[in-house]
Design a binder for these strands. Structure first.
Lengths: 193, 193
DNA sequence: TAATATAATGAGTGTATACTCATTAAGTAA
DNA sequence: TTACTTAATGAGTATACACTCATTATATTA
């Protein structure tokens, strides 16, 4: 059975992870570690007891984030497999994690390679579901004859463009929530044969 | 007539601007000012003789950059006004400035507000040319009935997505040069009625 | 030529940050 | 209860940077 020590340790680690997600979502990834320590109400040094470097913390954060997103995508995509539902579900998952996801798209350049690759792996998972939903309609000749990866990149490009320029389209609120239907409608109209 | 002093001064300022563009293109905007001074073969302090802060340097850089891009777009769009030519011209202009433009798209978050606004103003100019080229074809019913801003955002989203993920699509070379034709073909196929 | 003005220099300063480590406090085992 | 182990602490260190300013070198003016 786990002793008090082990539980306390695990609890502190969890607090660091949760607080880091919160602080990075709000302040961006250049937020100093003292901001995380302050918000989590632990000492600065504690962070380095659990994570040798901030890079290790980031990698851990993204590992968890990607697991969450992937499992959400997976369980939601069970229910229905047409393209409209899938786009809607995709946006819903992003809305749920909008703060952190937006930071990832905005600040990817400055993140370590491993973190970037984990983020790319998320898109890869999305593309698999995207393909599964689109394939029947493509076979049925309802979709324009354009390479699949182009269709997917157009969708992701559009969604990320809205995330990156959210302040322009929807100041002080969720761009995705506000623009969800017009994004989906427009994209569907574009790809239809 | 300009004395030797004034000419020398102007020449140094120019050297700083040109070198800063080069260094920022290669290393990103977090490149330290000593890197610019070193590359320009001037002393570190000289930068601050000409620009009180790095922010002032950045603003100056973008002012010039946006003037260049806008005038290129303007002179090129004179020649022909159909949408295919315009897209091609747009990509060509971006290819010409790809290093710096790519950095702007990647690191926009960390740039001062004034710089971001200048960058947005460039897109605004592009959208005007885009509309002019598209309008005749829209009137003729050749284009899908989708709000104009959606068409434009889809295009820009796609192009920026390729710039941001260039390493994935075309490692060690110009993504835009490599993917230009497929970007244009796919986009035209999508928007056609 | 001598006096003055100023562009350019680069060692030096201040600040923000990640990370360290000796110390403390609290759990665990004898 | 006592000795041992370890999570947590936070003052301290090292580093990287933007920006300063007294000094130097060069042009301009009298």
């Amino acid at each position: 059975m786990p002793g008090k020590r082990q539980m306390q340790k695990a609890q502190t680690k969890r607090k660091i992870i949760d607080t880091a997600i919160k602080v990075y979502s709000e302040q961006g990834f250049s937020a100093p570690t003292i901001a995380i320590a302050g918000e989590a109400q632990i000492s600065h040094g504690s962070i380095f007891v659990h994570f040798p470097t901030v890079e290790d913390l980031l990698v851990c954060l993204l590992e968890e984030f990607s697991q969450d997103i992937k499992s959400e995508l997976h369980s939601l995509s069970e229910s229905g497999r047409n393209i409209e539902k899938l786009l809607s579900m995709h946006i819903d998952v992003l809305i749920k994690h909008e703060g952190f996801y937006k930071r990832l798209t905005k600040e990817a350049v400055y993140l370590p390679e491993e973190v970037k690759n984990t983020f790319i792996a998320i898109q890869s998972t999305v593309s698999i579901h995207f393909l599964q939903a689109l394939e029947p309609e493509m076979r049925a000749g309802k979709i324009k004859e354009i390479p699949f990866h182009m269709l997917f990149n157009t969708w992701l490009g559009l969604v990320h463009y809205y995330l990156l320029n959210g302040e322009l389209f929807a100041p002080r609120e969720s761009v995705l929530a506000r623009c969800k239907s017009s994004l989906i409608e427009s994209f569907l109209a574009l790809i239809k044969q």
